[in-house]
Nucleic acid binder design. Structure first.
Length: 322
DNA sequence: CGGCTTTGACCCGCGC
DNA sequence: GCGCGGGTCAAAGCCG
């Protein structure tokens, strides 16, 4: 892909080379005003009926019907710029860290799209070999310290499919409240970016969901959040502030607990999924301009976009909600 | 005092 | 083999 992403290219939040491909990941952007706060329940009533997590829906054995419901829902309060799903092929990478999107046909003039890559979920080739290595390490680790063994086990688990979803949000705050409780466990400087990347883990016991938050160096006002894994619990009843999160930007307010419970993933994204990939199959998706112009939610119903999305999701996915 | 953040160290994979 | 970069760990400190 020789075309430059029109001035806006997405710094790959996944950096997935060590993870297997084949999982699903979406990336979307939202324009938010972190200082505002709306009622989170007004937009996505339909979603509330679905307990299927978005993550689950995007897995290989996915039943997209649930998502379809989500997509056919009421207009979100924020703008989704793009969504990307990558099944098996890795993203087209520009250099090492930059994901170069394609999907030009899916881009509408007033939309700005981010691209995403996905990892995890895959179990072929590289990940397999790595996994085998790790497994062997664990097995042979009898003589080694238990610490080492534990680490190896952890790595094996890590290599195992962990669906990831990335989305971009216009926000002044890095860590957006999404209803879950997160504990920061690391921060690293990002190459070629003045902004550090923060690593968070869900504090709920046995929940292995993680998320990474970094600010786009292309657009400092944009926060790139990457969720990894699925929540195996409901949103904590007692959240600091209130359940919806005082800091929750409007874009996040469309989230509904049932879905969030499954993914830790903002449902607004579901509602405003945008076309994002080529007809020929999933690759990546790219913004044609750097301005994060809000994307009209009607896009989802646009015939062309619909078609694009159909490429990405089974037809049932877009069945309109009565 | 518990929960959280900070931050340097460490581990690992990858490219050269 | 070495260096780089990403991701994670864990001790220390902070805060309510």
């Amino acid at each position: 892909m020789s075309d430059e992403p029109g001035g806006f290219y997405y710094h790959d939040p996944f950096h997935d080379d060590r993870y297997a491909t084949g999982a699903t990941a979406f990336s979307f952007s939202t324009s938010t005003n972190s200082s505002l706060y709306n009622s989170p329940s007004q937009d996505l009533h339909g979603l509330g009926s679905s307990h299927m997590s978005f993550t689950e829906s995007l897995h290989g054995s996915t039943d997209y019907n649930t998502i379809e419901t989500a997509f056919g829902l009421s207009p979100p309060s924020s703008q989704l710029f793009s969504v990307v799903k990558e099944e098996q092929k890795p993203l087209v990478m520009d250099g090492g860290d930059t994901v170069v999107g394609v999907g030009e046909t899916a881009v509408t003039p007033n939309s700005s799209i981010s691209s995403s890559s996905t990892e995890a979920g895959g179990d072929e080739d590289t990940s397999k070999s790595k996994k085998d290595r790790l497994q062997k390490e664990v097995e042979d680790g009898g003589g080694e310290s238990s610490k080492k063994v534990n680490k190896s086990k952890k790595k094996i688990e890590k290599i195992k499919r962990e669906p990831r979803f990335a989305f971009m949000t216009k926000s002044e705050v890095d860590h957006l409240e999404d209803g879950y409780r997160w504990r920061k466990y690391g921060q690293k400087a990002v190459k070629n970016s003045p902004f550090p990347r923060s690593y968070y883990r869900c504090t709920t016991q046995k929940c292995t969901v993680k998320k990474r938050v970094e600010r786009s160096f292309q657009d400092p006002s944009t926060v790139i959040t990457t969720y990894e894994g699925q929540h195996n619990h409901q949103i904590p009843a007692t959240l600091r502030g209130n359940a919806a999160g005082v800091m929750l930007p409007p874009s996040m307010l469309t989230m509904t607990p049932p879905l969030m419970a499954g993914t830790g993933f903002p449902q607004e994204f579901i509602v405003q999924m945008a076309p994002m990939y080529n007809h020929g199959g999933m690759s990546s998706f790219y913004p044609q301009s750097s301005n994060l112009t809000p994307l009209h939610h009607q896009q989802l119903q646009h015939p062309d976009d619909y078609g694009l999305l159909q490429d990405m999701f089974p037809s049932t996915f877009f069945k309109q909600e009565p």
